[in-house]
């Protein structure tokens, strides 16, 4: 349930003559800080003279502040969604994909190696989403409100956003149907985060990749057939499993709030 400041409280807050307890004022201001709707309502209840004064002071303050160079802020969003340590991992992942593509093009093999490794390629990057070895500022991030599962999800989305277009391109070149690798890819990523809540994301990525090799890659290489689990008819099962694991990961979000020896 969410709560906004009621009209009576806003009127009392806006009334300069009436003094509210400090704790109440702080709560109101904390809420106003993040709620545009209540700020707009506050603007409507203050005396007209106050609104004019605030607008005038606001204009002067804004005018006196040093202009922030745009170049400094250009990469702010990228910084929030990734770390530098993701870059080498993404580069290696793209390199591995292109190498497999070359192999597939020069020496066609059935089933396609692209199909057999594509779903687990992002896990190499996801492994760095919450790891003290890969994030120099891991302790600062862990001690912040934006740390924990929010940061894990942000960095995972970054890895997927960077790799899925490359995977799509490689799949298109090798005529590998999207449905055969995309749903398993999203499902193993969800599995990594869900298992990561127990083992740590780095270890979970290793465990899930090993499981993939044992269950999918090795049998496919030995039998030279597309494994049944990658059949087009299994798409609903992959989607349902992925969804279930995503819900499980979200339910276990608290596990990412603290650092353990597993991270």
């Amino acid at each position: 349930m969410t709560t906004h400041i009621d009209d009576d409280m806003l009127a009392r807050y806006a009334g300069i003559s009436e003094s509210l307890p400090d704790a109440v004022v702080w709560s109101v201001e904390d809420h106003l800080d993040g709620c545009g709707g209540c700020r707009a309502r506050l603007g409507a209840v203050v005396a007209p003279g106050t609104a004019v004064l605030v607008a005038e002071v606001g204009g002067r303050v804004t005018g006196s502040l040093p202009a922030v160079a745009p170049s400094r802020r250009r990469f702010a969003v990228v910084r929030r969604w990734s770390t530098w340590s993701l870059l080498p991992r993404l580069t290696v992942s793209v390199g591995a994909l292109l190498a497999v593509l070359m192999l597939d093009v020069l020496n066609p093999y059935h089933p396609s190696p692209v199909l057999l490794i594509a779903p687990v390629v992002p896990l190499f990057g996801v492994a760095a989403a919450c790891s003290r070895r890969d994030d120099p500022a891991w302790e600062l991030v862990a001690a912040s409100p934006q740390g924990g599962v929010l940061m894990v999800l942000r960095r995972t989305v970054t890895v997927l956003a960077a790799l899925l277009p490359v995977l799509a391109l490689v799949g298109w070149v090798t005529a590998t149907p999207l449905v055969l690798w995309l749903l398993p890819c999203l499902t193993v990523t969800s599995a990594t985060i869900a298992v990561g809540s127990l083992l740590g994301v780095r270890r979970a990525a290793g465990v899930v990749t090993a499981a993939w090799v044992v269950v999918v890659t090795a049998p496919a290489v030995l039998t030279q057939q597309v494994p049944a689990v990658l059949g087009a008819d299994k798409a609903p099962a992959w989607a349902a499993t992925g969804l279930l694991l995503a819900v499980l990961a979200w339910k276990r979000a608290d596990a990412f709030q603290r650092l353990t020896s597993r991270n």
Partner: peptide, 12 residues
């Protein structure tokens, strides 16, 4: 805009 829950709005 994120709204605050009753717990968060409660003065601490």
């Amino acid at each position: 805009v994120r709204s605050l829950s009753e717990t968060e709005l409660k003065p601490v």
